[in-house]
Design a protein around this nucleic acid. Sequence first.
DNA 1: ACCTGAACACCGTTCAAGT
DNA 2: ACCTGAACACCGTTCAAGT
Lengths: 229, 229
Amino acid sequence: MPKRKHQPAPRDTSLSRERIVEAAIQLLDEGGERALTFRALAEHLETGAGAIYWHVANKHDLLTAASDVVVAQALDAGTSARSPAKRLRALAIHMFDAMDAHPWMGSALAQAPGAIPMARLFDRIGAQVRGLAMTPNQEWPVTSALVHYILGVGGQNAANSKMARERGLERSHALTTVADAWQELDSHAFPVATSMARQLKTHDDREDFMAGVDLLIAGVVASADRTAG
Amino acid sequence: MPKRKHQPAPRDTSLSRERIVEAAIQLLDEGGERALTFRALAEHLETGAGAIYWHVANKHDLLTAASDVVVAQALDAGTSARSPAKRLRALAIHMFDAMDAHPWMGSALAQAPGAIPMARLFDRIGAQVRGLAMTPNQEWPVTSALVHYILGVGGQNAANSKMARERGLERSHALTTVADAWQELDSHAFPVATSMARQLKTHDDREDFMAGVDLLIAGVVASADRTAG
DNA sequence: ACCTGAACACCGTTCAAGT
DNA sequence: ACCTGAACACCGTTCAAGT
């Protein structure tokens, strides 16, 4: 009867908030939002479900912490561009890619309005917006519009990934399915949607995302010119 | 004369998809997303939980149907404005108000990417975008940007309402709490967020939303001018 | 065709009890 | 201080059985 049966196998590291968040991200990335449960997390970390609550307040807290790790990582990259507009574009595309790689993040951010990851995003976007020529009282609405746009696209993008995963399809194939459904809508009730279904099939999410960012930037520049001129 | 069945406790109407969706909207509006459960719904409709599944595929289907009722209502109003840009503004503000009045809709729409309510929204927005002077291949990205922006703001707005509700606060008071938290962040790590906290407290969600819509429209007009000129 | 409601397979969270 | 794991109070969904 080996006595080590009663001794816990030596852990790589003891339980910590950092390890929990890391494991949560892994579960979320691998299996989507449904895969993150305290039971699965406990099994993954070889501990009890209740132990996690010593380091993390609740599931909402955990999702916010996981988002913050990903957001911080995304926003730290690509700030070396030479103009505010270019840095803005770089930040935006990094956020897009991060939300694409971690589709759970869209809804996580949508559920944590004032939390740290949102403050981080506002801060980084806001810093570049200040660099664009504009009156000070435009800074807030412009920053706000950019952040909301980024989150809006990210959320829909995440939804598409999730839908694809649930139906066990490639993402592009899932979009084709949607496009086919739109094409078969009543063309009297949905004249534009039916005719736009083709673009839905062939479009590039990433390009369209950047087109929107550029539209917002162009709008800011146009408004600034009008104010200045 | 039609035979009348003698029923001791006659219902107003028998169970139907329409009545279920209507009751779901009521529960959602009154108690938030948490309040919509099949058990609560069954009790409200004086039936069994399983009966609902005869008319509705699952909870996701129910949320989508509920969203569609609200979206259809919002988009039917205010199409009488005299220019495409004005009609676009009218549609946007109606969507904002609808998402504000029904805070559960933001996340419901985010979970139903290709579904009917999304097709409806794309169709109505797209129809006005076509009226703006632009090249045909810009129609899709512009429509897409507007829709995503609307959903992004709606989602965050809903999150604010939800947060306020959960903490049992007035919505403006909840935002003040967030603003205070941002103000107390490390001003070295969050230089812009800390200094923008004041605007967070005093801003008007609705005005900021429209400022973003105008920014996008201005961007479209500026791009069109450049292409044309 | 439509409804019932118990049962199934889960959840997040708590907490007395351990080390 | 930190962890255990059973227990609690729920969920969405299914399905044999009813009308």
